[in-house]
């Protein structure tokens, strides 16, 4: 799913970093201390998932899990995806450093679509709705990201235009598998820990750094935090 180095032109990679920077900055400004472990957990899950390959005909595919990341983290998913993709590129050579910005945008777009679908379906109501919302959201997330990668390859990669279609088609089965995995996980989470879907983000959009610089005390975003 991720694009390697030397495929996209500079006219796409540079603005890609700018766009990814905006997405990450938006997530950083909403990040509350209580949510940091959850973001770290989803980052590591996203990173590890890409190492498990399922053979599929002449090629192999792997779970993406960005739909699940989006459903759980919501507007903070850009943060987790950016860190995980950077680690994938540096540690295991999956995806390129220069294409990191475009890759982050493609995956975050899918993740946030999953969250939107889950919220529209109101998947937090019950396990049944969570299964439905998780399946629809994660499946759609794979297609959105695959379409974004397809468009990037079609626009930017002259020599990889033929490959763009293969990338798109290869993710048809993985979207179903991804949807089933996310749906089962979402249904399980609704049963055992439904508050995991309720991300504690700072709706006032002022990060700790900003508070420190302006010498303001922390404003608690939830009554539970204030009590703690």
């Amino acid at each position: 799913m991720h694009i390697a180095d030397d495929i996209l032109p500079l006219s796409m990679t540079l603005p890609g970093f700018l766009g990814a920077g905006l997405v990450v900055a938006d997530g950083l400004r909403r990040l509350a201390p209580a949510t940091v472990p959850r973001v770290a957990l989803m980052t590591s899950a996203f990173l590890i998932c890409s190492l498990i390959h399922v053979p599929l005909g002449p090629t192999s595919v792997h779970l993406l899990l960005h739909g699940m990341v989006g459903i759980i983290l919501g507007p903070l998913s850009g943060l987790a995806i950016a860190v995980a993709l950077a680690l994938q590129a540096v540690l295991i050579g999956h995806g390129g450093i220069t294409a990191l910005g475009v890759n982050v945008l493609c995956m975050t777009a899918g993740a946030i679509v999953a969250r939107t679908v889950f919220a529209v379906v109101r998947g937090h109501r019950s396990a049944r709705w969570a299964f439905l919302g998780g399946f629809a959201g994660a499946t759609l997330a794979v297609w959105v990201s695959a379409l974004a990668v397809y468009a990037a390859l079609r626009i930017g990669g002259d020599e990889f235009r033929g490959l763009a279609g293969v990338v798109l088609l290869a993710h048809a089965p993985i979207s179903v598998i991804e949807g089933l995995v996310a749906a089962s996980a979402a249904a399980f989470i609704v049963r055992v820990k439904p508050d995991l879907f309720t991300v504690v983000w700072d709706q006032r959009r002022t990060c700790d750094l900003h508070r420190t610089l302006t010498n303001r005390p922390r404003e608690h975003s939830t009554p539970a935090e204030a009590e703690a």
């Binding site: 796409m12 997405v23 938006d26 975050t108 919220a119 468009a151």
Partner: peptide, 26 residues
């Protein structure tokens, strides 16, 4: 390329803001 990146970023940011504005109830 510029149009693609701009549209993708705008799409993502708009959805992120919409998600942030209406969190799921605890």
């Amino acid at each position: 390329s510029l149009a693609f990146v701009f549209l993708l970023t705008a799409f993502t940011l708009v959805l992120m803001r919409a998600c942030a504005a209406s969190p799921l109830p605890r």
